[in-house]
């Protein structure tokens, strides 16, 4: 299981989001920095899910619903 590569964001996708946010201003990205950002976003997703999961479990629910994410959102955004 550990052998399979972890699912993560493609560097090209990260770059597209960056370009869209920069709106035509000329900036380049080193290839390592897009891959590092991908890892950053992967950790962000897993952390969000983990925190929401613990709220869901505390409620006695097996399924994570949007309001569980809502409950952890402020602290999550402070930590990232």
């Amino acid at each position: 299981m550990a052998d399979a590569p972890l699912p993560t964001f493609k560097p090209a996708l990260i770059e597209k989001i960056f370009e869209q946010s920069w709106g035509g201003r000329k900036l380049r990205t080193a290839s390592d920095s897009t891959r590092l950002t991908a890892e950053f976003m992967r950790v962000f997703v897993i952390e969000a899910m983990g925190r929401a999961a613990s709220v869901a479990k505390a409620e006695g629910s097996d399924t994570i619903e949007p309001h569980h994410l809502e409950a952890v959102l402020p602290e999550l955004l402070l930590d990232f």
Partner: peptide
């Protein structure tokens, strides 16, 4: 646990927004 579809959609939107704010920080 399991993720509901709505949760995934919300998280995707949040992730997209976070990536955009990351972009402006990096700039």
């Amino acid at each position: 646990v399991k993720c509901s579809k709505q949760f995934l959609a919300a998280l995707a939107e949040l992730t997209y927004g976070k990536c955009g704010s990351l972009a402006s920080d990096l700039e």
